[in-house]
Nucleic acid binder design. Structure first.
Lengths: 311, 311
DNA sequence: GTCCGTCCACAACCGGTGGTTGTACCCGTA
DNA sequence: TACGGGTACAACCACCGGTTGTGGACGGAC
C-alpha cells in the first residue's frame, strides 16, 4: 500500500478521468494508470471500470474511497504531530496510570476538538528542559523537590492529589483489611522496582518512607507493571503502592487487593507545569479547564512532602 | 511518507533496538536504519536518540507513535473494506441525501461497533445484481417497478416512506405558500434533470406525474445538485422535488423555500433489499434495528405508486 | 460510414530509491 | 584492553516507478 497510489486513486475518483488526475498530480496519464493498476493488484480488486470516456468507480472502489480519504487524513495528522507550528497540545505525565491521565481524559471529553499528544518523560528535570525548549507544552509532575527549584519562566499550579493505595496478593497479611493505617505498614515490605535516584518520584517515596518509618525496596530490575503485579499477586510478603485512581486492567482470578491507606492518607501531589510564554492556544484552555474542575488537594487527613508546592 | 517506514518505526519503538526490529521485519539492521533515517528526514525531526545500547524515542517520537499506529490501523481498515471475507457491511442507497442516509446514521449510532460502507449504485437493476453477486449486502430502493419483479432469492421489506417537498426559489409563484396540494402543482414546471429512463426512480416520478397530471421535465444534462439548486433559486418558473428529510447544506441568502405537499403527500417508498442467504453477521443486526425503529409508511393521506410493495 | 478526438493500456527505456554486504565507530563490561 | 552488542556510513546492485512512444476502443460530427 503506497500512499502516493492512494492519493492518485482519490484524485482519479474525484476527476472521473485518469488524464485529469494526472494533470493535477503533475505526472503523466500512464503513471496514473500504472499506480492504480498497482493499487488494484495489491488489493486484489478492480477499483475502476475503464471506459473510453473516463474511468468510474466500481462498487469496491466506492467502498474503498472513504477509507482512502481517512487514510490520508491520518497521514496528515501524523505529520502534523511533529510539525513545530500548530501541532497538537503536548502534555507530559509520569505514567499513563497516574491520575493525570484521568484529568486529560476529562479535558478531552470537554474539548474533543483539541488535538492532544501525551508523552512520558523520565523525570522533572527532563520535563522542565522539554517545557523550556518548547518540545512539550505542559507537564503533570510533583514539584518542587529539594535542590530542584522551578526556573523563573516555569509556572505551576497544584491540580490534583492522588491518594495512594496498597496493592497486595490474596495471601498477604493485610489482604483482608478494609483499610490500613500508615503506622500498620511499618515492618511490611513494600516493593517498588524502578525507583531511580535523583527523580522527583523517588524523592516522594523516600520522604514517605522516612516520615513514617516504612520499608520501601527499589531492588531488582523493573520488568514493567505486568511483571510487578504478577509477583505481587504470588508473593505473600510483598506489597506495593499504586495510585488510587489507577484503573487496573488485570485478568480476574489473580486476587489482587487494593487497600486504602489512612491516618494520614499519602497523596501524590500532581502539579501542572508550563512555560509562561508558551504560545500554544490550547494551553490556556487546558489551564482554565483544570482550574474549573480541580479539587481534592490540601484535604485534611492527607500527607504530601513538605516540598510540594502548597496550592 | 512510506507506510513501510512507519511500520518500521513502530517495530523499532516497540523493540527499543533497530536490530530486533530488523529481525522481526526480516530485513537487515542497516535497512531499518535507512528507513528510519528517511522517515526522520521527511518529517524534519529526530524520532530516536541512538545509543550504544539501542535506540529510544525522542519526545517527537513519542508524540508521533500513536499517530503512526492509527495510520496503520487506517490502512488496515482500508484494505479490509475491499476484502471479500469480513469486510464492513456494504449498503447501497439511491443518494446520500435520501432518508436512507438518516436511517443508516441512526443505525450507526445504535451500533457504532459495526463497520459500514455506503455506496450509490445506478438503479434497482444494478443493485439487485450487486446483492446477488455479494458485492453489496443490502440496498435501500423503491420496489418493485413494473417489469422488474424481485428474484426469489431477494427479500425486501418497506422501511420508510419519505415525504416529498417542493423546492422553489424566492420568486416562484408558490414561494410564500405554507403548503401546497398536489392539485395546485398542475401547470407548474417541475424540473428534475437526471431522470434516466428505465430506472425505478424515474418510474416513480412518471407514475406521480401521470396520477396527478403534473409536468415533470427531465430535460438537460445533470450537472449535479449544486447546479440544480442554483438554477432553481434563480428561476421563478422552475421548482423541483426533494426528499423531505434532506438536510440541505446550502449557503444562506439564496432564499430557497421548502414547501410541504399535501392531499395527498407523495412519499418515496424506501424498502430494504437483501439476499436471503447473505452470511454477513451485521445484516441481521441491521434488519432487526430497522424492524424496531421503522415507522411512517402506509400512513393515510400519502401516495405511493401501486407497485410499491405494501409493507 | 468514416474520420477524428478523447481516453486508457502496453512496451521500451532509464534513473533513483531501497535493499544488501562489508566496515567503522561507540560504549559498557569482564 | 579486548570483547560484544549496538548504530551509522560506503559501495554495489536490482527493481520499482517514472517517462516517451504507440496502439486500441468508443462516441460524436460530418
Amino acid at each position: 500500500m503506497d500512499l502516493d497510489a492512494v492519493r492518485t486513486f482519490i484524485a482519479a475518483a474525484d476527476a472521473g478521468r485518469f488524464q485529469e488526475a494526472a494533470a493535477e498530480l503533475a505526472v503523466t496519464q500512464q503513471a496514473v494508470s500504472k499506480r492504480i493498476a498497482a493499487l488494484e493488484r495489491s488489493l486484489g480488486v478492480r477499483l475502476f471500470t475503464r471506459t473510453p470516456r473516463g474511468a468510474e468507480l466500481t462498487i469496491d472502489g466506492q467502498a474503498f474511497l472513504p477509507h482512502a480519504r481517512e487514510l490520508l487524513r491520518a497521514a496528515e495528522r501524523a505529520v502534523a504531530s511533529v510539525h513545530t507550528g500548530r501541532r497538537p497540545l503536548r502534555v507530559d505525565m509520569i505514567t499513563s496510570r497516574s491520575a493525570a491521565s484521568g484529568l486529560m481524559r476529562g479535558f478531552h471529553r470537554a474539548h474533543p476538538e483539541i488535538d492532544l499528544d501525551v508523552v512520558m518523560l523520565f523525570d522533572i528535570e527532563t520535563a522542565v528542559a522539554a517545557i523550556r525548549s518548547g518540545a512539550i507544552d505542559a507537564s503533570f509532575r510533583a514539584v518542587a523537590m529539594p535542590g530542584r527549584p522551578l526556573p523563573g519562566d516555569i509556572e505551576s499550579v497544584r491540580v490534583l492529589d492522588e491518594p495512594l493505595q496498597l496493592l497486595t496478593g490474596p495471601a498477604h497479611a493485610l489482604a483482608s483489611a478494609r483499610s490500613v493505617t500508615v503506622a500498620q505498614l511499618a515492618g511490611h515490605r513494600i516493593w517498588m522496582p524502578g525507583l531511580a535516584p535523583g527523580t522527583e518520584w523517588t524523592a516522594y517515596y523516600d520522604d514517605l518512607a522516612a516520615e513514617f518509618g516504612l520499608t520501601i525496596e527499589a531492588t531488582g530490575p523493573n520488568f514493567g507493571s505486568d511483571a510487578l503485579l504478577d509477583t505481587i499477586a504470588d508473593t505473600p510478603a510483598l506489597a506495593t503502592f499504586m495510585g488510587g485512581q489507577t484503573r487496573l486492567v488485570w485478568p480476574a482470578g489473580h486476587g489482587l487487593r487494593r487497600i486504602p491507606v489512612t491516618d494520614p492518607t499519602p497523596v501524590y501531589p500532581h502539579s501542572l507545569l508550563w512555560r509562561r510564554d508558551d504560545p500554544h492556544p490550547a494551553l490556556a484552555v487546558l489551564r482554565a479547564h483544570l482550574a474549573a474542575t480541580a479539587a481534592g488537594h490540601g484535604t485534611p487527613g492527607t500527607w504530601a512532602p513538605e516540598w510540594a508546592i502548597p496550592r
